[in-house]
Nucleic acid binder design. Structure first.
Lengths: 343, 343
DNA sequence: TATTTTTACGAAAACGTTTGCGATATGAGA
DNA sequence: TCTCATATCGCAAACGTTTTCGTAAAAATA
């Protein structure tokens, strides 16, 4: 049934044209040393014979794959898909392919993915750390071989690799200050493991904003969760159990925030009148949940583009020049109904 | 700064052990012809020297990449990520890698992705068609080379490739019948291009359910949109302009349905009292929107597993046996508040 | 002991491309 | 006519692995 037709090579083209494979090879890559007319003949014959370049053989010879690996901690998010779109835009422009690997927020899978991409001999790596990734050892292998690694969003501070991030401290500060401006006095922060630096920064911004406005910082107002769906419910129940009741919540994840709001509402809390809520990421749910969710928006597409540009830059430079180590992308507070308290 | 250490090969191991590269190669792949003790020595030396197998050379020699390509029409959806998880589970079990390609619901990109994966010489393909993909020509190249292609979810009916789908007709019928059972008499269907067979099937189910229950089928109640965010708003406005007002809506996409509900509510429509709503996919938004959205649920993970198993089966069979051409996975109606009319 | 079988390994070709270097032909300049 | 650039192209090695076939030694059999 299936007919496996013979794969045709540059030898076949060479033979048909009474040329050498070397000339055919050069002709196909538009080498200036080949006569224009010969090139034409080669191209035509290649098309006629249904030739397809054997990337594997080419990769073996050149020791390059023209592929860059992307490791993401999740896929089901507007932010990540925007980043991927940005990466793809730049890489295809530069003639590189991408391989997307998904860690499912799982350190073990992230390591497996890194090893896999290393095996596949990608020319570069763009990655965002999983939730529980404790160290960067699995990226060391790339650096040892001179393969550029660029981190985005979820990064490790004390690493001298290139990082593309937002100012999480500022975002946390802004969100908190906004709640304060709405008249909130008791603001709960729901966030994740402070080891992961994005969360620590947001925490620090939250803390400093409180102090700057003469509000007390209380440990019991900081809830460390996993930002899952369940987490939203738990956070809400926790908040409901507090006395006095908080009047503002800053949850560093939109989906969790939405679930939390829902649970609060089910228990008779009015949002934003009783409790104002701010999320993080500007996910699609922000506009679905009622009231619509105030959040921190940041440009995924742009971050992807910057990361990709940086990798390709490193790839094209022969010299090992000094590189920018951290690129901070602007982020902004998007005020919606969930935090707009009546004055 | 970056030190590119010399890549070590089986020759280096062979030399160090005074063996031939052939023996080392066999030893590394645990070939039964090699003495156990020799294998051990090879493994140890490989580890000591920091050997990593050159997949590219191996691929060139074996003419296999042990990689299967996955083309998806979107990433930002629970369904798709579940499918990917299912595919990954099976493929890694079988020792295959996957390359995820994203078509962004764009035919041109889908073609580019297919060509790319063809270039990369993947051993198999799992794919779901983009919104506007008019034909399957870009998959013909795989079939010509005997590379298995499996379609899932968005498939083309009149193709003899393997397809993993749900019974969209039944789903459409069920959803409509449910609305009828709730007392709806004027049910609007919001769906997408009927050329894409999933949408046609749902449409057919909707139509037949109406007729089976002695309700009139009216063309004006069928709204063909693109199931985007904007589409939800448009559908709502259209519905509001109708006279008499419809009392039920079946939108074949959860996110659009959520936006539509929102717009309807903003115009004073009560859901489900005035209009009952049913979506499709069981996305995360179903539980965020208020009231929670009745929808059709189907098992992405399982579909991914089945698709992957099928590809691998085809890969491992030497003989070109006859294959199952269509696998239908169960789907079910999930009733939530958005459609529960008070009796 | 002679012969066959088994066990363990090696030689070398093959996968298809790229590329440094050499070779040939053509025309210009002396 | 001879020399020397210049323009085109071919030779052959290299990339690192896998695998067919062959061989030598050891073990088993006659």
């Amino acid at each position: 049934m299936r007919h496996k037709s013979k794969e045709i090579t540059i030898y076949d083209i060479a033979q048909a044209l009474e040329l050498s494979p070397a000339t055919v090879s050069r002709g196909l890559q538009n080498h200036p040393l080949i006569k224009e007319e010969t090139k034409q003949r080669i191209l035509e014959k290649a098309l006629a014979l249904g030739y397809r370049r054997n990337t594997i053989a080419s990769n073996l010879r050149t020791q390059k794959t023209h592929t860059i690996g992307v490791i993401v901690h999740e896929l089901n998010s507007n932010f990540i898909t925007s980043v991927l779109a940005g990466i793809e835009k730049i890489t295809t422009q530069a003639g590189y392919d991408i391989i997307i690997a998904h860690s499912y927020e799982n350190y073990t899978k992230e390591v497996a993915n890194a090893n896999n991409l290393f095996q596949k001999r990608v020319d570069g790596i763009i990655t965002s750390l999983a939730f529980d990734t404790p160290n960067l050892d699995h990226y060391r292998q790339f650096e040892e071989k001179g393969i550029p690694v660029v981190f985005f969003d979820r990064v490790e501070e004390n690493s001298d690799s290139v990082k593309v991030i937002i100012d999480n401290y500022r975002a946390g500060y802004q969100a908190t200050e906004h709640l304060i401006a709405q008249g909130c006095k008791r603001i709960v922060l729901v966030t994740a493991n402070l080891q992961r630096n994005v969360y620590f920064k947001r925490y620090a911004g939250y803390k400093d904003a409180l102090l700057a406005h003469q509000l007390p910082f209380e440990e019991q107002y900081v809830l460390i969760k996993d930002l899952s769906e369940q987490c939203g419910v738990e956070a809400a129940l926790h908040i409901l159990s507090m006395n006095p009741l908080p009047d503002g919540v800053f949850i560093t994840n939109d989906f969790s925030a939405a679930v939390c709001m829902q649970t609060l509402k089910e228990h008779g809390i009015r949002i934003p009148e009783d409790i104002a809520v701010v999320g993080f990421n500007n996910d699609a749910v922000c506009k679905i949940i009622e009231p619509k969710l105030t959040t921190i928006d940041y440009p995924g597409m742009e971050m992807g583009e910057i990361a990709a540009k940086n990798v390709i830059e490193q790839l094209q430079e022969e010299a090992t020049t000094q590189h920018i180590s951290t690129i901070v992308v602007r982020s902004e507070l998007l005020v919606r109904a969930s935090s707009a308290k009546p004055q």
